[in-house]
Design a protein around this nucleic acid. Structure first.
Length: 828
DNA sequence: TGGAATTGGCTTTTT
DNA sequence: GCCAATTCCA
C-alpha cells in the first residue's frame, strides 16, 4: 500500500501535492490554465480511495461527459493494481446527469412525475412559441429568445412563477411572468423538464426536504466540483446543501476562465469560496506545463486588462518558442485560404499531424468558410457542432417516437410526428383532435384512440389516427415486456386489433373503457395527478391525497415508471422505423439516401448503447441522448483538424491553434459594446480570448480581416482591441491586405479573393471528384466497435456529414456516418 | 393535401 | 447567406 501511495503521489510539485493530500474539509484549487488541474483531481481521487475511503461516497462533477469520461479513465488507471478495481465505483458525472440520477430517485419528493422526459433546446423553442401564442404576447413586443432567456435566468436563480409574478411591475415583466406560468404548466402537462429544471429541482429538493438532504449528504460524503467558476446559483445551492455538514468539498477552477456569465454562471461563487467555507484551504497552481513562454506572456498581458480579478502569476519552464503570428487578410475567403496554407505548411515542414491543430472562432457562423477552404484543399477536419447529427430532422423524428413511447404525455414530440412520415393527418384534423383531447382531459394517444368520436373527422382519417395509437400501444407493450397474444405488430389494421389489444392489456380495464366511450365521461382525470392541478379544476384540493395511492396507479397505467425493456433499444428502434413507415421510398430520392443513412446510423448508435449498457432502459437511452454535448463527440487522434467555438475549446489543448475573426464586433462580440452591462461583458469576452490563447501549446496564429460578409452584408472590420493589448514583442505581423480596392463595392470580395489567391486548389483527382478529406477511401479496411472488420465499398460524400458504405464480415453492407461511427482505419 | 417557391429573420456563446 | 416557416399552386 505504501508503494501505491508513492505511485499516486509520484512527480507532483509541492502545491499539487498539497491539493492531492488534503482530503477532509473545504479545499479550493485555483488552477491556472495548463497547470495540471486534471492531474491533481484524478490523483486526489485515487489517493482518497487508496487511503481507504469508500469509493461510492466520492462524487466528482464536471461540465461535459467528455471531461467526466477522461477523469474516470485516468482515475481507474491509477487504481488499476488495487484489488477489486475500486476506481470503477467512484462516481464521475456531469452536473446534469448527477441531477437526473437524484431526481429519478427522489422524483416524488421533488414533485416530478415518474418517467419524466427531458426537453431539448429545439423542443424548448417550439414550446415557447406555443406559450407566447397561448398567453397572447405578440412576437413584435416580446422576442421569444429574450423571454426564454429571462425565464431561464429566473429559474436558475431559484425563483418560481409565483415569485416572478409577485415581483413583476412593468408591462414587460408581467408578460414574462405570464409566459413563465404558462410554460411551467405546459411542461407539467407533458411530464417534461428542461435543462434548467434538472438543476433547479435538485437544488430545491435539497434545500426544502430535510430527509432527502440527509440521505444525499451521507451518500455523497466527499464531493469535488470542477470548473467551479462556471457554476450558477442552482449549482451553488446543490454543492452547498450537499456539503453543509461534512464540508468535504473540493472546488477547482480558474476565475480567468469564467465564460458562461451570460448563462447565469456567477463568478462570485469561486471568488467568495473562502467566505462561504471559512477555514478553507486554498492551493494555487501557477506553473504552466502547456504553453511556450511567448504564448503565456501574451495571455497574461491580455488578462491583466481585466479589473476586479485576483492577481495570478502564471509562469513556465518551457522554452520561449515562436512568436505569435498575426495575419491581416482582405476578407473571410482570403483569411480561410491563408489559414489552410499555414496549416499545410506546418504539416509539411514540422511534421505536425492534422489532429494536433485546431481552429477556433467566436460564433458558429464563422466556421463555414474555413470548412469550405479545408474541404477544397483536401485537408481532413472534424467540426464540433450541435446540430450536426442529433439536430437532423429524421433523427429527431425517430427519437420523438421513442419519447412518446417512454412518455405518452409528451405532446411536443407527438405533435412532431403525428403526420411524419406523411399519413394524411392534416392541420384541421390536428386542431380537432387537440380540442377533443383538452375537452376530455386526454393525452394525444387517447384522443387518437377515440378519434371516431371526434366531430367532423371522417371515418377514414379517424382510423388512421387509431392505427397510429394502436402502433404506439404495441410498441409500449414491447417496451414493457408484456406479450400481446393473437396480434402481430404491423398487421393490417382493423377493429379487432384494438379489441384484442385492450383485452390483452393487464393494466387495461375494459369495463371502465367501455363506460368512458359510451358516456364520454371525463374519467381519466381521477387517475391523473397532473390534470388535478390544472387551474380551475375542482379536484385541485384532492391533490394531496392523489399523490400516493392514486398517482401510483396512474403512473403504472401509463407504464412510465416501469420501463423495464424486454427488447433492446436497437430492436425497438428498428421496429418503430419499419412500422411507422420511415423505410418507405419518398418521391425525391436525392435526399432519400441521406435520410435513410442517418436513420441507419441512429440505429447503429443505439446498438452501441445496448452493447455498453446491457439491459439499459429506454428512459436511460433517451437521457443519454438528451445530455450529450458537442464536445463529447470530439475524438482525439482522429487524424483531422478540429474546428470549434471558443466556448467549446475550454479544457482542451493543441500544439497548434488558429483563432480567426479577431475583430471588434466578433471578438469582442458586438454585445460587449452595446449591451446593458458592457463592462462586465467585455471582461468576459477578454476571458474568452484568454481561454483560446492558452489552449495553444507551441504555435498560435491570430487572424483578422479588412472586410467581412456579415448576414449577407459586406462590413468593414477593425482589428480586435484585444490584439492591441498583446505585447508587440510577442507578435509577428503579416499584413496581406496590399492595396486592396475600396471595400464595400459590390462583388469586391469574391473577385478579389479568387483573383489574388495564390491558388492552392488541388487539381481534381482522377474522375473529377473531390478528394475525400477525411482519409476514408474505397477499399480501406476498418474496424467498428460492434460490427467488427469491414471494408469500405463506397465513400458517398465528403465533409462532416460524410457517409461510407462498409461491407462487414459479420453482417454485410452498412451505410454509416463517419463522424458518428467511430471507424478505426486498419491500413496505413 | 403535398410539394415548390418565396419570404423573413437571424447570430453569440450551450448543459 | 442560409435556413426555416409561410404562402402559393397543382
Amino acid at each position: 500500500m505504501v508503494a501505491k501511495f508513492e505511485q499516486i503521489l509520484e512527480g507532483l510539485t509541492e502545491p499539487q501535492l498539497e491539493a492531492v493530500t488534503h482530503i477532509d474539509g473545504p479545499l479550493l484549487v485555483l488552477a491556472g490554465a495548463g497547470s495540471g488541474k486534471t492531474r491533481v483531481i484524478t490523483r486526489r481521487i485515487a489517493y482518497m480511495v487508496a487511503q481507504g475511503l469508500p469509493p461510492w461516497n466520492i462524487v466528482a462533477v464536471t461540465f461535459t461527459n467528455k471531461a467526466a469520461g477522461e477523469m474516470k479513465t485516468r482515475t481507474m488507471a491509477l487504481l488499476a493494481d488495487m484489488p477489486g478495481r475500486p476506481g470503477a465505483r467512484v462516481m464521475v458525472s456531469t452536473f446534469h446527469s448527477l441531477c437526473v440520477r437524484i431526481l429519478r430517485q427522489y422524483g416524488e419528493a421533488a414533485g416530478l412525475p415518474p418517467g419524466f422526459g427531458i426537453l431539448d433546446s429545439a423542443d424548448q423553442t417550439k414550446l415557447f412559441k406555443q406559450v407566447l401564442a397561448k398567453v397572447g404576447l405578440s412576437v413584435e413586443n416580446f422576442n421569444p429568445n429574450a423571454v426564454q432567456g429571462q425565464i431561464s435566468r429566473a429559474k436558475n436563480n431559484l425563483q418560481d412563477p409565483a415569485q416572478v409574478t409577485a415581483k413583476a411591475v412593468s408591462f414587460f415583466d408581467k408578460g414574462i411572468a405570464r409566459a413563465y406560468v404558462c410554460y411551467e404548466e405546459m411542461l407539467k402537462a407533458a411530464s417534461m423538464v428542461d435543462f434548467d429544471d434538472l438543476l433547479v429541482k435538485t437544488a430545491v429538493l435539497l434545500r426544502d426536504n430535510a430527509e432527502a438532504r440527509g440521505q444525499l449528504q451521507e451518500k455523497y460524503g466527499y464531493i469535488l466540483i470542477d470548473e467551479y467558476q462556471d457554476t450558477n446559483k442552482a449549482q451553488f445551492v446543490i454543492a452547498h446543501m450537499l456539503a453543509m455538514n461534512h464540508k468535504n468539498i473540493c472546488a477547482t477552477g480558474d476565475p480567468d476562465q469564467s465564460i458562461y456569465g451570460w448563462r447565469g454562471a456567477d463568478i462570485q461563487n469561486i471568488l467568495e469560496f473562502e467566505e462561504f467555507f471559512p477555514g478553507a484551504k486554498v492551493v494555487r497552481l501557477e506553473q504552466n506545463y502547456r504553453s511556450t513562454k511567448v504564448i503565456l506572456k501574451a495571455a497574461s498581458a491580455l488578462i491583466e486588462n481585466n479589473r476586479g480579478r485576483k492577481k495570478k502569476d502564471l509562469w513556465t519552464e518551457n522554452e520561449s518558442g515562436e512568436k505569435i503570428t498575426v495575419v491581416h487578410a482582405r476578407d473571410q475567403h482570403h483569411e480561410a485560404q491563408e489559414v489552410v496554407q499555414m496549416l499545410q505548411a506546418a504539416q509539411r515542414e514540422t511534421g505536425l499531424t492534422w489532429d494536433k491543430m485546431a481552429v477556433f472562432y467566436r460564433t458558429n457562423a464563422l466556421s463555414r468558410v474555413v470548412e469550405d477552404a479545408l474541404m477544397r484543399a483536401g485537408v481532413p477536419y472534424q467540426i464540433v457542432r450541435g446540430t450536426e447529427f442529433y439536430g437532423r430532422k429524421e433523427v429527431k423524428d425517430v427519437l420523438a417516437y421513442l419519447k412518446v413511447i417512454a412518455n405518452p404525455r409528451d405532446a411536443v414530440s407527438f405533435e412532431r410526428i403525428i403526420n411524419v412520415p406523411p399519413r394524411g393527418i392534416g392541420e384541421s384534423t390536428i386542431t380537432k383532435l387537440s380540442a377533443f383531447a383538452s375537452d376530455h382531459g386526454l393525452t394525444w394517444l387517447e384522443a387518437c384512440t377515440r378519434a371516431r368520436e371526434v366531430p367532423d373527422i371522417s371515418v377514414k382519417v379517424a382510423d388512421t389516427c387509431r392505427k397510429l395509437a394502436w402502433l404506439f400501444d404495441s410498441w409500449r407493450k414491447d417496451t414493457l415486456g408484456t406479450e400481446t397474444p393473437g396480434t402481430v405488430a404491423g398487421q393490417e389494421f382493423d377493429d379487432a386489433g384494438i379489441d384484442s389489444r385492450q383485452a390483452a392489456d393487464p393494466l387495461f380495464d375494459p369495463a371502465l373503457a367501455q363506460f368512458a366511450q359510451d358516456q364520454l365521461v371525463d374519467d381519466d382525470s381521477e387517475t391523473d395527478d397532473f390534470k388535478a392541478s390544472e387551474p380551475g379544476s375542482v379536484r385541485a384540493s384532492t391533490q394531496e391525497n392523489s399523490d400516493d395511492g392514486v398517482a401510483q396507479q396512474a403512473s403504472a397505467a401509463d407504464g412510465t415508471n416501469v420501463l423495464v425493456p424486454s427488447m433492446k433499444i436497437r430492436d425497438l428502434m428498428e421496429k418503430v422505423v419499419n412500422e411507422a413507415g420511415f423505410r418507405q421510398k419518398r418521391k425525391n430520392n436525392s435526399d432519400d439516401e441521406e435520410i435513410t443513412a442517418n436513420v441507419d446510423e441512429l440505429i447503429n448508435v443505439a446498438a452501441e448503447f445496448d452493447l455498453r449498457n446491457t439491459g439499459g432502459s429506454l428512459q436511460e437511452y433517451l437521457e443519454q441522448v438528451a445530455l450529450v454535448s458537442d464536445v463529447d463527440r470530439l475524438k482525439e487522434g482522429s487524424g483531422a483538424v478540429t474546428l470549434m467555438t471558443l466556448h467549446a475549446a475550454k479544457g482542451l489543448e493543441f500544439p497548434m491553434v488558429v483563432m480567426v475573426g479577431l475583430e471588434d464586433g466578433l471578438l469582442p462580440h458586438q454585445r460587449a459594446f452595446s449591451g446593458p452591462d458592457s463592462r462586465r461583458d467585455m471582461e468576459e469576452e477578454r476571458r474568452l480570448a484568454f481561454v483560446g490563447i492558452t489552449r495553444a501549446m507551441r504555435k498560435l496564429i491570430l487572424t483578422c480581416v479588412e472586410s467581412r460578409m456579415v448576414r449577407g452584408q459586406i462590413e468593414r472590420q477593425k482589428p480586435s482591441l484585444f490584439l492591441g493589448e498583446l505585447p508587440p514583442e510577442c507578435l509577428e505581423t503579416r499584413d496581406l491586405t496590399f492595396h486592396a480596392p475600396p471595400a464595400g463595392s459590390p462583388g469586391f470580395s469574391d473577385t478579389a479573393a479568387s483573383f489574388n489567391a495564390p491558388v492552392s486548389r488541388p487539381a481534381p483527382s482522377g474522375n473529377g471528384r473531390r478528394l475525400h478529406a477525411s482519409g476514408y477511401r474505397r477499399g480501406l479496411l476498418v474496424r467498428h466497435a460492434k460490427f467488427g472488420l469491414g471494408r469500405i465499398e463506397e465513400v458517398m460524400s465528403a465533409g462532416p456529414n460524410q457517409r461510407v458504405r462498409v461491407n462487414f464480415q459479420s453482417c454485410g453492407l452498412k451505410t454509416m456516418v463517419t463522424a458518428m461511427a467511430n471507424l478505426e482505419p486498419l491500413d496505413r
